[in-house]
Design a protein around this nucleic acid. Structure first.
Lengths: 152, 152
DNA sequence: TAAGATTGATGTTTCAATCTTT
DNA sequence: AAAGATTGAAACATCAATCTTA
């Protein structure tokens, strides 16, 4: 192993990861906003609530899935709740916890967001990758970065 | 062209781009913080100031390079200035503008951040990609996403 | 004592408006 | 009128402390 650590290729991958994500996210968020829809964070949370179905989902589980800190989840739920998209219920199994449930209105919002979101993904990501093979290769490489394996 | 638009591969690439960036950034920021260093945004700005050298750089140019909104650059400079890392000077060519200059103290900070930052890039990105060929392939694919081409 | 969740205070980002110069 | 830059107010995120139950 000679050469600098990290290599120039690694530094370049890092820099482009930061830049590509920022650009793509900004464009997708802009598309949502111009359709008068709430930010992507709402979509992510509502989708997890939908997937959880009737039993609901606990805030601590949302934290893990959305990669958010506890206090951020708490306040995100506050906003979703006061907008009528989520309902907080007591949790039978664990007195400290809650169960979060998607309301009809929340489901409706989720379904109104997806067509705009889907098109934005295609416009700002899909259209730049010209083949599915490229998209798969990119997904594969990015997947390696998130493999847990207790780093440090 | 059959199949859904965007394809499953594209949606997967999008989702992993968001997730991989968030995870990598959170870890790198955590490393900076535990070394009692300021956030990455400061590094990015200071580096551009260093590259600009003696003539300095204008806020509007920083906006473009850092992908930040005008008001965010304005306030980032406020913080850097009050911490003594940047100096604001009048701009000769354009009375509306300014020239921003890196101070000695700013250069010192930049140089203290890099070793920590570099190691974090290696720990959280480089070490997951096992070959330089992978890093290059990832950088190449990510580069395609940022190709301007006036989308919308 | 630790885990799940919330909250007050503080810092940062965003929105909309403003100011100056081109 | 448009471009460069700033600012007050509101929204959101972060830090540290708190509260409750396991």
């Amino acid at each position: 192993m000679t050469g600098p650590i990290p290599s120039a290729a690694v530094v370049s991958a890092w820099a482009r990861l930061m830049r590509a994500q920022r650009i793509a996210l900004q464009k997708v968020e802009a598309d949502l906003k111009s359709a008068n829809l709430p930010p992507l964070g709402w979509y992510d949370a509502l989708l997890e609530l939908k997937r959880a179905g009737a039993p609901g989902i606990r805030p601590v589980e949302l934290e893990r899935r959305l990669l958010l800190a506890q206090h951020n989840v708490s306040r995100l739920i506050d906003r979703l709740e006061s907008a009528g998209h989520v309902e907080r219920r007591a949790c039978d199994e664990d007195g400290r916890g809650q169960k979060l449930l998607l309301t009809t209105q929340g489901l409706d919002l989720l379904e109104r967001m997806w067509p705009v979101y889907r098109r934005a993904i295609q416009d700002h990501v899909g259209s730049k990758l010209d083949t599915d093979a490229n998209a798969s290769a990119l997904a594969d490489l990015l997947g390696r970065l998130t493999d847990e394996a207790a780093d440090r």
